[in-house]
């Protein structure tokens, strides 16, 4: 069970947010009372919350940040003014069958 999904909240929430989410979840009845109570218990305890956070979230930012995402030189002219043109175009492809 993913308590964040049960309460429909993100990882960086305060205890106040959790309590509000519990009230909302009870009202919406998308999950059983037991599940909601368990989710609340897990997220209100700092240690349990840290464990849940590790299991429930991944962080791809370090991977994306280390990639150089500037437009490569070979492709720069293709998008230089928002229009496609440059080294190759569809028109270069002629029938050679």
């Amino acid at each position: 069970m993913n308590p964040y999904k049960v309460l429909n909240i993100d990882r960086n929430v305060t205890k106040q947010d959790i309590l509000q989410a519990v009230t909302l979840a009870m009202r919406e009845r998308r999950h059983s009372s037991r599940e909601i109570a368990l989710a609340q218990k897990k997220l209100m305890n700092e240690l349990l919350k840290a464990s849940e956070e590790f299991v429930c979230f991944i962080d791809v930012a370090p991977f994306l940040e280390q990639l150089d995402m500037t437009l490569p030189e070979t492709m720069a002219q293709v998008f230089s003014d928002g229009k496609r043109r440059g080294p190759v175009s569809d028109a270069d492809l002629t029938y050679e069958g």
Binding site: M75, D92, E96
Partner: peptide, 19 residues
């Protein structure tokens, strides 16, 4: 001729992916 065209299509695919 065929190899030339294949290289051209590869370039077109690369361009599309960049775009």
């Amino acid at each position: 001729t065929f190899l030339k065209q294949r290289a051209l299509v590869q370039s077109l695919l690369a361009t599309t992916l960049f775009e």
